[in-house]
Design a protein around this nucleic acid. Structure first.
Lengths: 233, 233
DNA sequence: TGATCTATCGTTAGTAG
DNA sequence: GCTACTAACGATAGATC
């Protein structure tokens, strides 16, 4: 199209690239508009410009509404897969550290959300097996709750410098009683052990972790340029 | 384009609508591909077909990576605004109830995430004032932690029927000790009250709630068809 | 029968300069 | 903006399931 064809590769000349960006961004937004109106459907679009500036399009309400619908559909089932212990912990720790290093002015809830999101997303899960075991499932749930709690504790115990940007320094969080792991609550035979007063705090772990079900992926079309998608071309 | 022009309105004929959908979906994905390659940028695209089927495009990795980048940019600051008590509680309750009614096969973590997301998103916040008060902030954090925990408890105490789809019925969660509200932990003078054994469970509340900063919105372009966006046309 | 591809054709709208 | 040029796509027909 246009006076002459463009090769499908990055435009070297920065100013030309920006011009092309503007034109095509507007074009694709128009297309998205038309598609959503003509077919009466939800469309969401996220574009990060060469300068890192974000342009968002959503056919209906906010882009977050589209996200919600996405996650709503992603709630697909299979039994919880087994995750090698520790890996998830490390990942979370890495994220929290990175965020703390940046000392970004972050709103606590967004921060908290990011953790939970990164955790539930957990893209690096491979070599996992399905286990239909209610006990394990319960372990997972308990550990999940405690892990989030624990993480939040750890995070907000550290002073995040929010004062510089009109926010506050987060004071030390409250002492909490919930530091039992499911391992302590369920014995080797799967029997329930109510918490005792003489327990010792212990590292929680996540024996089970989420991933998208294969069946779900098969019913959906996912495209991306790195060939990691599941789409039927 | 095409043999003759289409009016920019919903296509009445369902089969024609689907055909148009397919073509234009492929077209817009091609455009998104070209845009991301030519300009070397991240692009994410979410399309829900007339049948509710989801098509996803992401220029780089998974669509969730684009989400993460979005939320990363969205973590903008202002002091936490005051939220009228109760409204958020109601909203969360509504969501949990709706989800329970549907009895959908949901993965616990996704479910949990959805709650946290809906909570941190909270689009209905209006008429809020900024308050620079560390105590209130701490209350908020404590309440936040406890609310999520409490909700998770409430949710998973209820048997969610996951068995029909190869999943399990979630057994009653462990007895937890963390049902104190910040109100109980911090007295009227802002002093810290460690938990006592004779406390009574009580409804937690959220005095503070997140929203996107206006300044952030001003620096970004948001488009949508309902005129609620912030974009400069 | 209805849905979903494929192919072809001709018009026009996206876009490079 | 403008202009030139071509690729997106509406219509239609035929194939497959």
């Amino acid at each position: 199209m246009g006076r002459n064809k463009l090769a499908l590769k990055k435009i070297d000349n920065p100013s030309r690239r920006k011009i092309t960006y503007s034109k095509r961004r507007d074009g694709i937004i128009k297309k998205a508009t038309e598609l959503s109106v003509l077919c009466d459907i939800d469309v969401g679009l996220l574009i990060f410009s060469p300068n890192g500036r974000l342009t968002t399009f959503s056919s209906n309400g906010r882009i977050e509404d589209i996200f919600l619908r996405y996650f709503d559909q992603s709630n697909v089932l299979e039994a919880g897969p087994i995750e090698q212990e520790g890996a998830l912990q490390e990942k979370l720790h890495e994220i929290t550290q990175k965020l703390q290093e940046r000392q970004e002015k972050m709103r606590p809830v967004s921060f908290f959300f990011l953790i939970v999101f990164a955790w539930s997303y957990n893209p690096d899960v491979v070599n996992i097996n399905s286990v239909h075991d209610a006990i394990a499932h319960q372990q997972f749930l308990n550990d999940a709750i405690q892990n989030i709690e624990k993480l939040t504790m750890e995070i907000f115990h550290e002073p995040i410098d929010l004062q510089k940007s009109g926010c506050f320094q987060v004071p030390p969080a409250a002492t909490r009683d919930a530091h039992l792991t499911a391992e302590e609550l369920v014995d080797g035979n799967g029997n329930w052990n109510p918490p005792q007063d003489d327990h010792q705090p212990k590292e929680a772990h996540l024996p089970v972790s989420p991933h998208l079900s294969l069946e779900y992926l098969r019913t959906q079309k996912h495209w991306n340029l790195q060939g990691r998608g599941q789409g039927s071309a």
